[in-house]
Design a binder for these strands. Structure first.
Length: 415
RNA sequence: GGAGAGGUGGCCGAGUCAGGUUGAAGGCGCUUCCCUGCUAAGGAAGUAACUGUCGUAAGGCGGUUCGUGGGUUCAAAUCCCACCCUCUCCGCCA
């Protein structure tokens, strides 16, 4: 949620929101609505003070004065009711717009849209297409059964079988071990959450149609463990000395992928269900940019360890999600398509999410909102896609990346 | 799934079944000071959050909050309704 006061007072802040595509007219409307809300609030509070004083006086009044005083207080209350109704109206006007205003982009974020990213670095060679793309190769190895998946659950569902499952577990173990070494606390969170959690984590109402609902119990399947990880400190007052708090969540992720018909229909590149290790950090405002770089460093290290060629981009303002002030994408070379495709990313939300979550940090002179950051450590299914293309051999066999061998006990898998 | 008990400030815990100076007794913890070779013990004072507004500031004046949301009332921690959560017992279960 946007900081209304800063939006009012800080020109650059406002400009950052507009760079992300916020309508300047909406912002004007919001500021006007908030102005009128605060005026009305002052009025209401003055009247409440009067009413409170009147009630208090009744408690101390002589019995014979009571009747008159109660009647007077009653009138006061009626008038108060009218002004309170007006307050509700202005508050509703603010609420309607405020959740739609995105977090302003950071100064270091380039202007523009999807294609206007800033290239940070590119690592490794970009090989030509292998004999089989990942979809064919998955079938060849008996690792992916998309047909049966579709029979059982519909399109974009697949069975993962055989060594692919062992590779999945190896990836998870490898990633977790690395993160524990970096001071992350491993977490397996709930994957079904209440509506309020979705709202507080910033996914509702904007991404409602991407989420599966379990209507009978009014629960929602999370699209990422970021949601329940955000809930881990909702409403807390954190001790500044204990920060940063780093969590590594492992969970299955469920996404409806509405609006992607026809895109990425081969194999398991884009599916409704996959497993992911997600990093989530609670930080002080002073530390958060350093933590953002740390997330990128870890993501790069994982890709380096897996021997995948990739590039890092600084995503342009217009292509950032609403809560992110800055986001790096790590895009890995997908040989069959001859292009880089997103595998991981990391974002700094600053205090945008914490404001809604109500997560504060105790400070000497009061409190401040925490900063939250998140990043993909390993999106398992999609990582397998890249491994299948980069590690398949001309004879159809598969060479297991060095770093995964200790975790799955395999080195070369022949067919 | 059935039956009960309960959710109060950083923590413990009164107050709720006679609604009114109770934002909330008492204790613990914490901060400052006094005493004291040091420490412990003892003594004194202070100690909720959020928010509006005024002020350069210290701070002042208000509002809101006793699980959450509604309701009754001039007035609600206290009464009513719904929901959430925790605990105990029974049943069921990986």
């Amino acid at each position: 949620m946007i900081d209304l006061r800063r939006l009012r007072d800080d020109e650059a802040y406002r400009a950052g929101a507009i760079r992300k595509g916020a309508d300047p007219a909406d912002i004007e409307k919001l500021l006007t609505a908030d102005e009128s809300r605060r005026t009305t609030l002052t009025e209401v509070e003055a009247m409440r003070a009067e009413a409170n004083a009147a009630s208090k006086a009744i408690g101390q009044a002589d019995p014979d004065e009571r009747e008159a005083k109660i009647a007077a207080a009653g009138e006061l209350k009626a008038r108060l009711g009218e002004v309170e109704a007006a307050l509700q109206t202005t508050q509703a006007a603010v609420d309607e717009i405020v959740l739609g205003v995105p977090n302003p982009a950071h100064d270091s974020v380039p202007d523009g849209d999807e294609e206007d990213f800033e290239l940070i670095t590119a690592v490794g060679d970009t090989p030509p297409a292998p004999p089989m793309d990942h979809a064919d190769y998955g079938e060849h190895m008996g690792w992916v059964d998309a047909e049966r998946g579709a029979d059982v659950s519909g399109s974009r569902f697949a069975y993962l079988r055989g060594e692919a499952v062992l590779l999945e577990f190896a990836l998870v173990q490898f990633t977790m071990q690395k993160l524990v070494g970096r001071g992350f606390t491993p977490v397996i969170p709930p994957v079904l959450v209440r509506e309020q959690m979705m709202v507080d984590a910033g996914f509702f109402p904007t991404d409602r149609n991407q989420v599966y609902d379990v209507t009978a119990d009014e629960l929602h399947l999370v699209g990422t463990s970021e949601v329940p990880l955000a809930g881990l400190h909702r409403g807390d007052r954190l001790d500044g000395d204990a920060l940063p708090l780093r969590y590594a969540g492992f969970s299955t992720c469920f996404r409806r992928e509405a609006g992607t018909y026809g895109k990425d229909t081969r194999g398991i590149f884009r599916v409704h269900q996959f497993d992911k290790v997600e990093m989530f950090i609670w930080s002080t405002p002073e530390q958060s940019w350093a933590e953002h770089e740390l997330l990128l460093e870890i993501e790069r290290e994982i890709l380096d360890d897996l021997g995948l060629p990739y590039r890092v981009i600084n995503v342009a303002a217009g292509d950032l999600g609403a809560p992110a002030a800055k986001k790096y994408d790590c895009e890995v070379w997908l040989p069959s398509e001859g292009t880089y495709r997103e595998l991981t990313s990391c974002s700094n939300y600053l205090d945008y999410s914490a404001r809604r979550l109500g997560t504060r940090i105790k400070t000497d002179d009061g409190s401040a909102f925490a900063h939250t950051l998140n990043g993909t450590a390993c999106a398992v299914g999609r990582t397998l896609v890249f491994l299948m293309e980069h590690y398949q051999q001309p004879d159809g066999s598969f060479v297991v990346p060095e770093v995964l061998r200790p975790f799955c006990g395999l080195d070369t898998i022949a067919r």
